[in-house]
Amino acid sequence: MTVSYSGVTKSYRGRLVLDGISDVVNEGDLTALLGPSGSGKSTLLKIIAGLTPLDSGRVSLAGKDVTNEPARNRRIGFCFQDYAPFRHLSLRDNVAYGLKVQHVPRAKRRAQVDELLALVRLEAYADQFPHQLSGGQRQRMALARALAIKPDVLLLDEPFAALDAQVRAELRSWIRSLQKEVGITTILVTHDQAEAMEISDRIVILNEGRIEQAGRPSFVYDHPATDFVASFLGPITTLGGIAYRPHELELVAPDEGVETYEVRDVVRLGFEVRVVLEDADATTWVQLSHDQAKQLNPRAGQRYGVRVRAKVPTVKDAPAADHEGAK
């Protein structure tokens, strides 16, 4: 189901959280709302769900205006960052809650809950209580509970933020495949650009209540519309006042005929090595692989050349019609 919102404005305690933003989320897509904390992304998600009233603007589901519909009538599955398990209910009763509300008969309800628990691989825990589960299990329980009402849209608020790195990576790809399997339009809020790049069909980058850019992940990464997008989506290094992605600069021997710089520091980052250079106007750095670093063996105080492989192309000089990166 298509989700669209237009002119959404929201102030909270005199601070403008959302500044008249508009977007359309296509049927079956997984969209990531990406932005730093305080950018308004969670507020936007709650407004779409009908959990937070908006000051002005409209929200539509499949073309139907639902701005004044309460959350319970929107058929939107919502998962909070803390998963909000009903602490006093067993896993089974948590998942069954929405079905009970709809007065689904007991036998049918039980069959549906079993099916959902199997889908999220929690069959063995049906009679446990939320406090007996791990973070990742609670997360999956929250998903099953939201999917129980067969929602048209799924909204996930920072679904992986409270999990440790390993579970996080696992769940990320699992959610991705589950979303494709169920085929449900999904909007996911995150502040982690790597997560957004990996999981989503489309990224919407929010900053201070405005949409900075929206588009396919690879396009937005390669063609950032603003400096904010460029630096938020990935590391940026500057040389001569121009921003580059690290892979676009190459450290070469000083006699290769390109401009040379003095090495200030060499930092080992796991497999890669970061060489910090003294630039005329700012501090520049170049990322080398372990092998490259071994070959060149840069030391502080020495001079090396920097070859530019490509300049970061910005959307500003790409054709206007292609801001989203045509598929």
């Binding site: 009908g50 959990l51 319970r72 909000a84 509970r145």
Partner: peptide, 12 residues
């Protein structure tokens, strides 16, 4: 959050 989740699940 628990109450809001219940609302999205259709509860009055």
């Amino acid at each position: 959050h628990q109450e809001q989740t219940a609302a999205t699940l259709g509860a009055k």
